[in-house]
Design a protein around this nucleic acid. Structure first.
Lengths: 260, 260
DNA sequence: ACCCCGAAGATTGTATACAATTATACACGG
DNA sequence: CCGTGTATAATTGTATACAATCTTCGGGGT
């Protein structure tokens, strides 16, 4: 078999698979985990084709489990599936990002509201520590992790697995744009102050204010991100205009959603 | 090959596949559509194993596309996947149902709030018609369909595909319990009155009240459903205790969720 | 009788092979 | 030069075959 055209990017997924904490019980889950991380961290560019053969070879498996992983990611919205033409990393329009942040606002506000009455000192301490650690973080990725830890600590998601999954899913979907533009870094000051305010409201069990502050925080983040993406000359790919190496036509992707 | 043990229930999926509107572009989507419908309509009982071989034979395909469909449904939460032991129809505990309704409340309240300012007369008329048609509906399923139409008309989900998908997904997940217990029928009066009130608030563009009424409506529905399930001697299966023909052990299912 | 162990059957998991579809390159006619 | 049609290559989609795992059932030991 002659070498396949483009080796699906610069990233070595095989390495990621072995190095990372992706030792799942099943092969497709391992693969979807690796790809999820690669996508949410911005290592794979939006629009980039995810070819079954390439991925399979890089990961040392056949295309069957790869297909299953891709289908799962498609169902999560991280990947767009074009029938008979394969999967590409999902590209989000500013409008979609806006929608996602609106949904996040609704879900996370709900999560915090429910959580705030039963916030134990232990949890509050954990949130505070994440916040403080984030001030000392010295790279983008670490700050992002701690940001998420801070938020999720306050939400008390342990007993609400569905809510947790939905929020995580939305986070994963937008995360990469923060990484790509290095926005976390630029906004650290602002976000840190907002986090501090939210935490204070939680300490005072002032749920109304905490929720309002959280919503404002998410609004700011969304506005920042959308402004950067829409306005920024620099779109998704670092230098050259290669959004879709093999550009995929205008055909619509599978809805894959419940039909009503 | 000797005949496989149990033919995956009483339902003839092959028929459903050909009869219904499940002519999707891809085989796995067709299959997931059929199964989604069968599950959400309550034709497949909670805990019932979904064996790859059976489904493949009934649908006239191989197990490969079936596996992909099952994985997608697992990602949607309609099916629970036990590694190396296959998939079963997801069983919801009262606690999970409560969680789902809380999430629905958050999402649908958001949807309605955003939608209400731009509700056109056309849309309001459509909602009203659905409501009126539901009064004339003479079976469970039809009423359910119109109920959903009424709600979704008011939410204006056309421009918010992710939100639409998430709401639909939650609906699909809990729907079968209403069908199984025939609860829609018993609650028609109450629900109809509540729908009417919501519609009136929308007509007056009173978004605050409309949202409050919607939330109360969902709270009532959740309470009703949970009371029935938890209290009802009749659990999920009609007569005999056959929740899991081949009972699946206590091993945990795959999380299949983003790992943090 | 009970429990532990092992073999047989059933079922899932995946690699391989092939069919179907789509993209690409190139010659041809306008 | 440009659009069009056709051959070729690349890629996806799925059936089949086989390996791995799990469940069940029965025998031997206690």
């Amino acid at each position: 078999m002659a070498k396949s055209s483009s080796e699906t990017g610069i990233v070595n997924l095989g390495t990621l698979a072995r190095a990372g904490s992706h030792r799942s019980q099943t092969t497709p889950d391992t693969i979807s985990g690796v790809l999820r991380e690669a996508i949410s961290k911005g290592l794979l560019k939006a629009g980039e084709p995810l070819k079954g053969d390439d991925l399979a070879r890089q990961l040392g498996v056949s295309r069957i489990p790869v297909r299953e992983a891709l289908r799962q990611l498609a169902s999560e919205g991280l990947v767009t599936y074009y029938p008979n033409r394969g999967a590409v990393v999902a590209a989000l329009t500013p409008e979609e990002i806006r929608e996602i942040y609106q949904i996040r606002k609704a879900l996370e506000a709900h999560a915090l509201q429910e959580s705030i009455r039963q916030l134990s000192p232990t949890i509050l301490k954990k949130a505070k520590e994440a916040l403080e650690a984030s001030r000392r973080a010295n790279d983008e990725a670490e700050w992002g992790q701690l940001d998420i830890q801070f938020h999720e600590a306050l939400y008390s998601l342990e007993n609400r697995p569905r809510l947790a999954k939905m929020i995580d899913n939305l986070l994963n979907t937008v995360d990469r744009y923060w990484h790509i533009y290095g926005l976390n870094h630029k906004q650290r000051r602002v976000f840190d102050r907002e986090h501090k305010q939210i935490l204070e409201a939680c300490l005072q069990k002032n749920s109304k204010q905490a929720v309002a502050l959280l919503q404002a925080h998410l609004d700011h983040a969304a506005a920042m991100l959308i402004r950067t993406i829409a306005g920024g000359a620099k779109t998704d790919q670092p230098t050259k205009a290669a959004v879709s190496p093999k550009r995929l036509g205008p055909r619509k992707p599978t809805a894959s959603s419940p039909g009503r």
